[in-house]
Amino acid sequence: MNERLYVTPYRCIDCKICEQACSLVKSKRPGVPARPRVQSFNVEGDTDFVLLCLQCDEASCQAVCPVDALVRNPVTGAIEVTDRCIECGFCVVACPFGCMDYDPANNEYIKCDVCYGDPACAKYCPTGALVWAERPLSEAEAEQRSAQRTTDPFSVPAGD
């Protein structure tokens, strides 16, 4: 599998659909949305961007974890939190991007695991800022995608 989660921050319009999709698929109990693993921001001065775990090669979270609870999935390449976690929160403090988090609703430490190879955020991103593919979208493809989503907001692109 050569697919990766490609993030193109400048295409983000801060619509927060990725956050909602994430929080719904990661929800454990009905009616209790999980804390999203992806964040979109609007910085004053007209910049929107989306922030997601970079799955660093030399990850700070992995380096500080005292019990080796963060394990890279060889198939997706993503680092996942395993049941070895002792809930010390070191990884949250150590991640320079703020992409490790604690979810009080489910009482667990969370990070993006690219939904084990089927990321919900990318499925519903209307602008192509997040795509799960073998290469990032070209400008034309991204425009086509946002046009399609404007007319049919819940469509899922073919192939996803």
């Binding site: 319009i13 801060d14 619509c15 921001f41 609007n42 004053e44 929107d48 209307p126 946002s146 404007t150």
Partner: peptide, 16 residues
């Protein structure tokens, strides 16, 4: 501290 939320509709106009 400067990060703040904007509404979807006002931003959608800018997509193109």
């Amino acid at each position: 501290a400067k990060v703040k939320r904007r509404t979807y509709s006002s931003k959608l106009a800018r997509v193109g």
